[in-house]
Design a protein around this nucleic acid. Structure first.
Length: 554
RNA sequence: UGACCCAUGGUGUAAUGGUAACACAGCAGAUUUUGGUUCUGUUAUUCUAGGUUCGAGUCCUGGUGGGUCAACCA
């Protein structure tokens, strides 16, 4: 039985057009190269490339590079890297700047048709005569210049005869239009700046609204999808295409992705970087794609997330927990298990011979038999997690306590006989005995213990640096601040904690980018700066922790 | 106060005029050498008022609530 597939509204639109005889699907992902991509862009990438893939169509990568003062090649490189890392490949690499000549010719055509004019008003005058959302604007005194004069002035704008702000080219639509964007929108402005691709060839640059639809049209894009805030731009998008009589691309809008406990605007992310609140665009706490990558997220977990959040036109705030769930879903199946103790407490096993090492076979991944096993050393002195021992355990505490017994994961049962304290009364070490008959899940008399804890042999342990990340913001909606506040006030002061951990020896040789599950502690990834012999791990995310909930209730 | 978009469990997303469902989260239990994983069960949903219809989450009208738009940004 085939279950009917649930289509999102964009797929509905595409399938409608297929049914009516328009089978071709061509999308595009159109970033401006003025910053790094974030998880919100990942949703758009998955949509554009995913739709093309699903309907045997194509998806272009097009850089919307119409504003030379904001853009840079540094960004185009990072954008390409991020898209490929996510698992997508574009069918063509294009730049809006490749169309500057065509766009110029079309502007001349609109002037000839009496649909565009050169305006001499200042920026201030243009702003005030545009009116407001409730009041109509007023016509520019230059609105009715002759075609010849407009042609001459526009050519001289291009030739560099005017200073920035002296003149602009405007579409002649309707200064009383209820949609503000239709009140004689600007098509070209003068910018005497070098462009990262066209250099100094141009000193007039097209605005987004004039360039975007035409670029889509040139590439014969069938479905131009963008976020909701461009909805009011659609009439203008259509207006230019209609007036020019060119290939009719169509724009469709979907709700952008929002996630709680983070910010998604490029401006704010830039601020975090520039003011040093994070170490860079790829700080593992950032919602940027490079940040998530460095943190240890997998491409497929992000694709799964994009699929799970779906696509609609309703504003949304997705729970960060869903992204983490998608990550664990992936990593649980693929990450090799290792043992590392983040907050070590020394345990001496008094009845284990001094100087002896026993090698214990440990499963690399219980979810994947093919991952095999490894040998881990065991000896008289081991480290366990401080939080796995309590002198006065609460109810349902299955871990170690005075007189209590737990199993060392993959190893023996140990019983705590003595708690040794230092001069300040702090627990210095535990003295335990082990049951030599208790390997492989057994015990000398058939008794069962509920607690299983991870451990590392002290003399064999590798000391490693581990960075424990928490959410960057303490507030669910960091943008919502009281009067006079900023989103920076909501930064989580404890978003980064660095510890020196004791890890099983093999971890010392981890290569940058390798992912592991440290049993019972979470998923970790060797950082970009990690080197064999001097490893550095990022905690990608914790494991689900149902004990924490029980402990909270106590 | 203008135009446009949106409104379904806590969070998302479906239901295409005919039994309101799925995922995450929550809760309860089973399994488990990770308090992980897996499995089972379970709580909880159509903004509001009218209208059309045998029948409305879906169509229509009004209201309410949220969002977008007044950069020579994209």
């Amino acid at each position: 039985m085939e279950t009917p597939e649930k289509l999102n509204f964009l797929e509905e639109i595409i399938e409608d057009s297929i049914r009516s005889g328009q089978p071709r699907v061509h999308t595009r992902f159109p970033p401006e190269p003025n910053g790094y991509l974030h998880i919100g862009h990942a949703k758009s990438i998955c949509l554009n490339f995913g739709l093309a893939r699903k309907y045997n169509g194509k998806c272009n990568l097009r850089f919307d590079d119409t504003n030379p003062v904001k853009e840079d090649v540094e960004y185009v490189d990072s954008i390409k890297e991020d898209i490929q890392w996510l698992g997508f490949q574009w069918d063509g690499e294009y730049y809006a700047s490749d169309y500057f000549d065509q766009l110029y010719d079309w502007a001349v055509e609109l002037i000839r048709k009496g649909k565009a004019y050169v305006d001499d008003q200042s920026q201030e005058e243009i702003r005030t005569t545009r009116g407001t959302v409730t009041q109509a604007g007023t016509n520019s005194p230059w609105r009715d210049r002759s075609v010849e004069e407009n042609l001459d002035l526009f050519a001289r704008m291009r030739a560099g005869e005017f200073k920035e702000g002296e003149k602009v080219l405007r579409a002649k639509i309707d200064m009383a239009h209820p949609n503000m964007l239709m009140r004689d929108p600007l098509m070209y402005r003068i910018i005497h700046a070098s462009h990262h691709r066209t250099g100094d060839r141009w000193c007039i640059y097209p605005m987004y609204d004039y360039a975007h639809g035409e670029s889509d049209s040139i590439e014969r894009i069938t479905h131009s999808i963008c976020t909701l805030e461009f909805d009011v731009h659609r009439p203008l998008y259509d207006w230019f295409i209609n007036e020019l009589g060119i290939f009719p691309s169509h724009q469709y809008e979907f709700a952008r992705l929002n996630i709680n406990y983070t910010v998604m605007s490029k401006r704010k992310l830039l601020q975090l970087v520039q003011q040093g609140y994070v170490s860079g665009w790829d700080d593992p706490r950032m919602p940027t794609i490079c940040g998530l990558r460095r943190r240890g997220y997998t491409p497929s977990s992000i694709r799964l997330f994009a699929e799970k959040v779906g696509v609609a036109k309703r504003d949304n705030i997705i729970d960060l927990g869903l992204l983490e769930w998608c990550l664990r879903e992936d990593l649980n199946k693929t990450a090799l298990r290792r043992m590392a103790v983040l907050n070590p407490l020394k345990v001496v096993i008094t009845n284990f011979p001094e100087g002896q090492t026993e090698w214990i076979e440990c499963v690399n991944n219980p979810e994947d038999p093919e991952a095999g096993t490894r040998q881990v050393p065991f000896s008289r002195e081991v480290y366990i997690e401080q939080e796995d021992f309590m002198e006065e355990p609460p109810k349902k505490f299955f871990r170690l306590a005075p007189g209590g017994e737990v199993r060392l994961r993959y190893g023996y049962l140990i019983k705590c006989n003595e708690v040794v304290k230092d001069a300040d009364g702090r627990i210095a070490e535990l003295r335990c005995t082990y049951d030599p008959q208790s390997a492989h899940g057994e015990s000398s008399d058939g008794r069962k213990v509920k607690g299983i804890i991870h451990w590392v042999s002290a003399p064999h342990a590798a000391e490693v640096e581990v960075r424990l990340f928490d959410r960057l913001f303490a507030a669910e909606a960091p943008d919502e601040t009281p009067e006079g506040g900023t989103f920076l006030d909501n930064l989580n002061p404890d978003s980064l904690k660095v510890v020196r951990a004791q890890a099983e020896p093999s971890l010392a040789e981890a290569a940058a980018g390798q992912r592991f599950q440290f049993e019972r502690m979470g998923y970790f990834c060797a950082d970009l700066d990690s080197q064999p012999g001097k490893p550095l791990f990022n905690r990608t995310t914790t494991l689900k922790d149902s004990w924490a909930k029980i402990a909270d209730k106590n």
